[in-house]
Design a protein around this nucleic acid. Structure first.
Lengths: 124, 124
DNA sequence: CCGCTTATTAACCAGATGGTAAAATAATGA
DNA sequence: TCATTATTTTACCATCTGGTTAATAAGCGG
């Protein structure tokens, strides 16, 4: 896959199970079995998810007796945060524009209730 | 795939080509051919990438003659930003700890020079 | 209508992903 | 040493992904 770090991080985050695991780890270290408990899937599945998170540098693992406790290692998220920050003005701008548009009320637009997705609909 | 919105967004961002397309769109609208130009891949490939971005709500597309101009629609990134913010203290904490460790200098560690780019500051 | 330009759809392929069950490994404790 | 607990590895499967080429569609401009 050779993917760059940012891609690897985003890919790791693109799964609700893995994000839930990270959320759990915010509350402190946990062993694999403990992490698996809330999910309706087998241990090997969780083990794979943990490997994905580990390769993305989002968790680190230790060893204590038979357990392999995991802990959060969030720096890649710093990278994500920095990446996304570049786009901040775009979603903020968009909201501003929407506000302007709604306030200006050019001509006598029939005030259609907001109801998103008015246009486009490229067939289908 | 039924994936939730956040998963769809992260998945869409987990590809350097798609991130590059978003970066290009920061500089303004562009048609498909124009977006495709910088990449060593065929138009259908780009078309697919655009579909992924569109389904993630990261771009919107219009129509102008034969062209289908794309423009950035970054609100899903707002969601990402909000999600990632919850973890901020974790990567900041880690850096703090590192700092502590470096300052304490227990025993007589050989002072390796800090080598600029110490810890990055998340900007802003 | 014809032909050009722009873009999408269709069909296909290799490789990644997310899951399973069953077997293997690792550390502890009797 | 043996059983137990905790976790990973292996082998397998279906589906998704990212790319290709070839065919199709949609708007122009003559």
């Amino acid at each position: 896959m050779v993917a760059d770090r940012l891609s690897t991080t985003f890919a790791a985050l693109a799964d609700p199970t893995r994000r839930a695991i990270l959320a759990r780890l915010m509350r402190g270290e946990a062993a694999v079995g403990e992490l698996a408990a809330p999910f309706a899937m087998t241990l090997p599945a969780i083990s794979k998810h943990l490997k994905v998170l580990e390769r993305a540098g989002l968790i680190a693992r230790g060893r204590a007796a038979q357990r392999r406790p995991c802990r959060l290692a969030a720096e890649p998220l710093g990278e994500v945060s920095r990446w996304v920050a570049d786009y901040r003005r775009f979603w903020e701008l968009r909201l501003d524009r929407l506000e302007d548009y709604l306030q200006e009320a050019p001509k006598a637009r029939t005030r259609r209730p907001k109801k998103g997705k008015a246009h486009d609909r490229t067939r289908r």
